[in-house]
Amino acid sequence: MNRTLLFLLALAASLLSANAQTQAQTQAQTQSAPPLREAWKNASLFLFNDAFSQFQKEKTTNPREASLGEALSLLGIQPKTQKNLARSLSILTALAAENPSDEIGLAARFHLARIDELHRTEPNLPAARKQYLSLLEDAPASPFSQIAASRIALIDLHLSAPDPASLDETEARLRPLENFLRTPEGKREFHTMVGLVLNTRLGNPTTVLRHLLIASKESFSQKKIESDVLFTIAEIADTQGDTALAKQYYSRFVADFPQDIRTFLIKKRLEDFSAKK
């Protein structure tokens, strides 16, 4: 009796175990990536509600990273509410206080500055600037600090009075920040920011030229911005009578952007230069 019963029980157990294995394999095929990676992927695709739920579920396995994700998803969830903003602020403040210098702490500090700059109904630009500067001074090598330098430049130039003297003064105040620029991306972003904002605000063309020339030595991820930088350099040089520099940058523009709407205009200008020789 016992042998028959044991055999039957073993058969039932093996069937159930095989079934469980099939199920586990199926799940493994569909959920092979680590859960936090999936949550960040959703956040990167602007699927903030999905990301938020995933981050909340993973708070036990990796609490600091999941909390950062939770706080940032709250900033993206629509409709934007004061409650979500306050909750995000509270999580980021706690993360920054717990460890201000690890990767999560630096990211939290950067986004606390972003909240003051952009996410509040009434921005607090001086507070944002203070936090960006502290981030830059404490950890210049962090990718967030490299972005912070260009943010400070934008805020200062925006808050400056629009007359040329004030803009010059502001630009001079920004120069020490160049010592903190450690990466090609950081350099490119800072000098592009100062150059293009100064140009938009009708600042000193020579100063604009200095910044854009430094930026133009780096590689650009955004072709549209690169084309604007090259065109502005060439046009300023042309206006200032620096034909050699104008020709150099007009030619680079034509070579790099043959399909741009400005290319024909530039070719005509280059023909003018040749005719005047």
Binding site: W40, A43, S44, F46, F48, G69, L75, H111, I147
Partner: peptide, 10 residues
Amino acid sequence: DVKLAADIQL
């Protein structure tokens, strides 16, 4: 803002 942080994490 959120995308930047997510892409840096990824």
